[in-house]
Amino acid sequence: MSADKMTVGFKNIHFAIMQEDVRKGETTYGTPKYFAGAMQATLNPNASSQTVHVDDVPVATVTSTGVLEMELQVDSITKEAAAELFGYRIDANGVLLEATKGKSPYIALGFESESIDGGKLMNWMYKGKLTVPSQEFQTKGESVEIKNQSVTGQFVNRLSDGEKKVSVHSNDEGINQEVILDWFDEVYKPVATTVPPTV
């Protein structure tokens, strides 16, 4: 990534419930919804490498990526999102009942980040589950310390096409700007891929 595309922001976290994921078939999602106010995120692809030695000489290196782990700091998850994501319920008075009664679904999670050149880096992670958020409370003292919510997630490859995560920068050449404008209207569907450039 060039220096002018270094990120300087983080916002617009959305989630979409995965409806089905069929091996060598299709993956479908519900309509994306707002998740929570974005504060900070860390993505760890769990990449690893191993060097092969023959006759006491390194001759090859094998690399691989594992589960994509995400650590997410947000302001406050909406109760509607919490009910969908963690199997909670909302009663007739609008109170969130936090005894888990359902199974946590697989979701897609998307977000946006600004870059130094004024562009936008758009992301979707295709198939993962989030943990129930941790919360911290503290009495007010002479200085007020604001507490956020912390969520972790693990994302894996889809069965339908093996995809795990997609991203696009709005200022790259050849980008259809409608893709950027419609990014959170639905989970992005990849089109036919192009051959990567040779080095």
Rank of each mutant, 00 (worst) to 15 (best):
S167D: 04
T63I: 11
S49G: 15
V151A: 00
K189L: 05
E80W: 00
G94D: 08
D172K: 10
V57G: 02
Q177W: 11
K79T: 12
K79H: 10
V191N: 03
N93P: 04
L130R: 09
E112K: 12
E114H: 03
E173G: 10
K140G: 03
R158E: 12
K79W: 00
A99K: 09
K140L: 10
E69F: 05
D75T: 13
S170T: 02
E178C: 06
F155M: 14
F137C: 05
A60H: 01
K120S: 07
D185T: 13
G102V: 05
K127Y: 13
A83N: 02
E80K: 13
T78V: 02
S143G: 12
S167I: 04
K140I: 08
G66S: 04
F137P: 00
G102D: 11
V168Y: 05
K101Q: 09
A192D: 09
D161Y: 01
A92S: 11
S104F: 01
E178L: 04
P190G: 02
V95E: 13
L97E: 12
V132H: 08
V156Y: 15
N176Y: 08
V132E: 14
A192L: 02
I175R: 14
N123A: 06
T78Y: 07
H169K: 06
N93E: 11
D161T: 15
V179D: 07
R158T: 15
A108V: 14
L181G: 05
N46Y: 00
A83Q: 08
G110C: 14
G94Q: 09
K79C: 02
K103Y: 00
Q73E: 09
L121S: 05
Q135M: 11
G141V: 13
Q73S: 03
V187G: 00
N171C: 06
Q73R: 05
L121T: 07
G128Y: 12
G141L: 10
T139E: 15
G118S: 05
P190R: 12
D56M: 03
G128F: 10
N148Q: 11
M70N: 07
L159F: 08
I107A: 08
D172T: 01
E98M: 13
T51V: 15
S115K: 08
G128R: 15
F137G: 06
A92R: 12
G66C: 04
Q50S: 15
D172S: 06
P190Q: 04
A83D: 00
E71Y: 03
S115L: 04
A192P: 01
I77C: 10
V191W: 06
L85N: 02
L109N: 12
K189E: 09
L181W: 01
F184Y: 14
S170M: 04
Y126T: 02
E163L: 12
S134M: 01
T61S: 07
G66M: 02
W183S: 06
D117F: 05
K101T: 12
N93Q: 14
F155W: 12
L72V: 07
V74S: 06
